[in-house]
């Protein structure tokens, strides 16, 4: 009996969690303009999305492009910065290390809106005209801590002498980094990259505050504006569904990588 209730609870929880997205996914397969009206199964919205046969297609496509390009740049730069930072933090000792690790965690816990507003104020204060560049900078800022968090455990697991062993065998510090350190940190760097990519992809608040007034749109700001204009463009339903599936796949990849590495560690 107890088991039954426990099961019910879990299912209830999952339903509440996933109902909205399932709802959108289901209604992405019908043509109705109003969400909630089932007018028969159709994949027309999907084909509209890809053939561009819809109103405001141009701006939606450029929003998608912006989103992906910004996410790629932000994830790449923050992977580089985060890895270097993690190596630095790892080699620190005592209080300094604790302090920096703590400071690294704050941006992740900080509400997006605060990060967004404070970056906005900073850019205004420094007279940096806001647009593409500021959005990219802002994304790098909040993505980097996630990379640090993913790379640090790899460094702790590593035998502390491997880097020295490389130097000992005649590698310059740079060669030791490239031929030994990076290959060993790669799993953490990839996880960090994927996480940074998804964080950038779904960001709204920070982008909203740092994009300025030049009309730059990412997917999230586009959807927000679109929804405010009176109703969601129907084609966004398949788009949201596809994005959800995409993120889901990335998450599954991350988890499988984690499982595999903990398996090999356990051996």
């Amino acid at each position: 009996m107890k088991r039954f209730f426990a099961q019910c609870y879990i299912w209830l929880l999952l339903i509440v969690l996933y109902a909205p997205i399932v709802f959108i996914a289901v209604f992405s397969f019908t043509e109705s303009k109003v969400l909630g009206n089932w007018t028969g199964f159709s994949t027309k919205l999907y084909s509209n999305l890809f053939t561009g046969n819809m109103q405001g297609t141009g701006s939606l496509m450029s929003a998608i492009e912006n989103t992906i390009v910004i996410a790629l740049i932000a994830a790449t730069v923050s992977t580089v910065l985060g890895t270097i930072a993690a190596i630095g933090i790892h080699n620190m000792r005592g209080r300094g290390k604790q302090a920096i690790t703590f400071l690294n965690n704050i941006p992740m816990l900080n509400p997006d809106i605060i990060t967004g507003v404070s970056l906005f104020l900073l850019f205004v204060f420094l007279h940096i005209s806001q647009g593409y560049v500021t959005v990219v900078l802002a994304h790098i800022t909040f993505c980097t801590p996630y990379v640090v968090l993913n790379v640090l455990p790899k460094l702790t697991q590593m035998n502390p002498n491997v880097y020295e062993a490389a130097l000992d065998l005649g590698a310059t510090p740079f060669q030791a980094l490239r031929k030994v350190l990076i290959p060993l940190l790669k799993p953490g760097m990839i996880s960090g990259f994927i996480l940074a990519f998804t964080m950038s992809l779904d960001d709204f608040a920070v982008t909203f505050f740092t994009r300025g007034t030049i009309g730059l749109d990412t997917l999230s700001t586009y959807i927000y504006t679109d929804a405010r204009k009176g109703g969601l463009t129907p084609e966004l339903r398949p788009l949201i569904t596809l994005l959800f599936v995409g993120i889901l796949i990335l998450l599954i990849i991350i988890n499988m990588r984690k499982m595999r590495s903990s398996n090999t560690a356990a051996e």
């Binding site: 002498n161 020295e164 000992d168 005649g170």
Partner: peptide, 15 residues
């Protein structure tokens, strides 16, 4: 990396 010595480490430190 410029010294004519090589080291065998306590915990091997293989790559």
């Amino acid at each position: 990396h410029k010294r004519p010595v090589n080291t065998v480490f306590q915990r091997y430190a293989l790559f």
